[in-house]
Write a protein that binds this DNA or RNA. Structure first.
Length: 549
RNA sequence: GCCUCAGUAGCUCAGCUGGAUAGAGCACCGGACUUCUAAUCCGAUGGUCGCAGGUUCGAAUCCUGCCUGGGGCGCCA
């Protein structure tokens, strides 16, 4: 009995009650959910469906609840249904029905938690997309962790998803970057708007190593641009890979320009009647689609703007077949949402085709004080700095356990601690404890058998743990649908707590002088199921699940 | 000025697609190691959910206004 199947039973019991009472079934929702009440007196699961529908149907919630409760009590696996308060249905599931989930989880293994809530959605998720003119900074690190987790969660929910990084390898920033490298190589001062930092020195030296003739080439700047960009991008890609963040596509802006896609996109928009000339420039009438002001596509000097590239890139993605375009951007880009959405609408797409997630900043602290610790990039904190400070697992976990809407104060002291107060250790430790028990069982040749008596898992700690385990697929689905991967982390912490409590109160293996009982065997299944779910949850966050700590 | 995020326990934050006495970790206080790693567990203390209205049987959650703090409002990329 999973929460999902119970919810279906609740809905059909309600439908039957409506029929019996002669009420209009049209007011019933297509789906409903049961929740886990905090107070154990309220049963294993609770439903508020009578409260939600009684008024619309023109009846009394308690009377309706009575009728539903009667139908529900007859359902196999439901032990008891109480009516409480204004019309809550408090449902108690019998232990055998609840305990069955452990075996299903063990059988499903890695696949447990996958669901079909986003089945058939063909999506593109763009994140990080930091300019290849320097290392990824702290903000980009947050998107690297969170975007990757979101990609995993959406895929687990059935979405066909491409993780994409837009490489801004065209335009003035790259010119400045190339000029900075060239100046460094010639030991000249950094040009105006140029880049500084140890990484510039390193890349300039690396370019000279790769192309000893660079300074004598016909166009030295071009050599430094091409080779330097390549080195910088490789560095970024290596950093991301080491961080466990996977991209399916690194999309080159320059390539898009070279293929003439900007012209094509602007022509398309012109044909659609949204483009006009004014003040010597070419504009897109984004105000038609809710933007504050119209935006320039081609400036009066005849150059394409970054915005024109955005239009072309949008069209490129759509023509590659993506139906859902999701962007993760930093709070410093929230002013772009209006014009970006306008692009989508100008091309004639439905609202919701483009989805822009705005995430807040991250501050790195040590002992409550802001820190700056980059050795490479001037005064900027980089992804590598974060990883050096706390490690990949702690960094990824710390950056995925908070809502994107919250600014993060990431305190290095906290995230390097080994204990209860460090959530990633707490969760990983719970996982490693499951391995510990299973290892001991194997060492002592305690066999759990091919099946177990689910009704034996009736201790309150076992019931709580089973309920937590059963919730996982719904958590993954909601994390995907709401684009909130932090829900998985919070869930993992709850599950870890339920497991620690279980292991504290319930002896799994027999003591050395005792025979193995059916309770021991059933508990081994429960431990294994917990192992699976903790590993899967950590996996969705891109955090390792150690077997020993 | 406009847009946007946040404001919940001493601290860091969940909860926000309306539901039952508002949760967790840390800190503080008091307990549990002949343990399956105590890297854990149990208990106690602690909150006018920024403020004021409104909608509702019911609001931390939805609406309006205000206050405080972060970010943003280029023919830059």
């Amino acid at each position: 009995m999973t929460p999902e199947t119970l919810a279906e039973k609740v809905l059909s019991a309600t439908r039957d009650a409506f029929e019996a009472l002669g009420l209009d079934a049209a007011v019933l929702p297509a789906q409903t959910a049961v929740e886990r009440p905090r107070d154990p007196k309220h049963g294993d699961y609770a439903s508020n469906i009578a409260l939600q529908t009684a008024k619309k149907a023109g009846t009394n919630p308690r009377a309706l609840a009575e009728k539903i409760a009667g139908n529900l009590a007859a359902v196999d696996g439901v032990a008891k249904v109480d009516i409480a308060g204004p019309g809550f249905l408090n449902i108690t599931v019998d232990a055998a029905a609840a305990g069955g989930i452990a075996g299903k989880i063990v059988a499903a293994g890695d696949a447990y938690g996958t669901n079909n809530s986003m089945e058939g959605v063909y999506a593109n998720l763009e994140f990080v997309s930091a300019n290849p003119t320097g290392p990824i900074h702290a903000g980009g690190t947050r998107w690297a962790a969170m975007g990757d987790a979101l990609a995993r969660v959406m895929r687990a929910s059935g979405a066909k998803l491409t993780a994409e990084y837009y490489v801004n390898d065209a335009g003035a920033q790259i010119d400045h970057f190339a000029a900075s490298l060239l100046a460094r190589a010639k030991d000249e001062p950094t040009p105006e708007n140029g880049y500084v930092g140890a990484y510039i020195d390193e890349i300039a030296a690396d370019v000279l190593e790769a192309r000893p003739d660079a300074l004598d080439a016909a166009e030295p700047l071009e050599v430094f641009r091409t080779v330097g960009l390549d080195l910088m991008l490789k560095d970024i890609q290596t950093t991301l890979a080491d961080f466990g963040t996977h991209f399916d596509v690194f999309f080159s802006e320059k390539g898009m320009h070279d293929r003439g896609e900007v012209e094509t996109a602007v022509q398309r928009l012109t044909d659609l009647g949204h483009v006009y000339e004014a003040d010597g420039a070419t504009w897109l009438r984004t105000t038609t689609f809710g933007d504050d002001k119209d935006r320039v596509l081609k400036n009066s000097k005849g150059g394409w703007t970054y915005f024109a590239s955005d239009c072309a890139y949008y069209l490129d993605k759509r023509e590659r077949g993506f139906e859902k375009l999701v962007f993760m951007l930093g709070a410093d880009h929230h002013g772009y949402v209006g014009r970006m959405q306008a692009i989508s609408r100008a091309f004639g797409d439905e609202p919701g085709t483009m989805e822009i997630l705005i995430g807040q900043f991250v501050n790195l602290l040590r002992g409550g004080e802001p820190i700056r610790l980059s050795k490479r990039a001037g005064n900027i904190i980089t992804l590598n700095d974060v990883v050096e400070a706390v490690g990949v697992d702690a960094a990824r976990y710390a950056l995925t356990r908070y809502s994107a809407d919250s600014t993060i104060d990431l305190d290095i002291d906290l995230w390097t601690r080994h204990g209860n107060e460090n959530p990633v250790y707490y969760v990983q430790y719970a996982h490693s404890r499951t391995h510990g028990v299973l290892r001991n069982a194997a060492d002592r040749a305690v066999d759990r058998g091919d099946s177990y008596d689910a009704a034996l898992l009736s201790h309150p700690r076992e019931s709580d743990l089973l309920k937590a385990l059963a919730e996982f697929p719904a958590v993954v689905a909601s994390a995907a649908e709401l684009r909130e991967p932090h829900r998985v982390a919070r869930y993992a912490e709850e599950l870890a707590a339920a497991y620690h409590r279980f292991q504290h109160d319930c002896r799994v293996l027999p003591f050395p002088d005792e025979e193995t009982t059916d309770v021991n065997r059933a508990r081994l299944w429960l431990v294994d199921a917990t192992r699976v779910v903790l590993a899967n949850a950590l996996g969705l966050l891109g955090v390792s699940a150690p077997e020993r700590m």
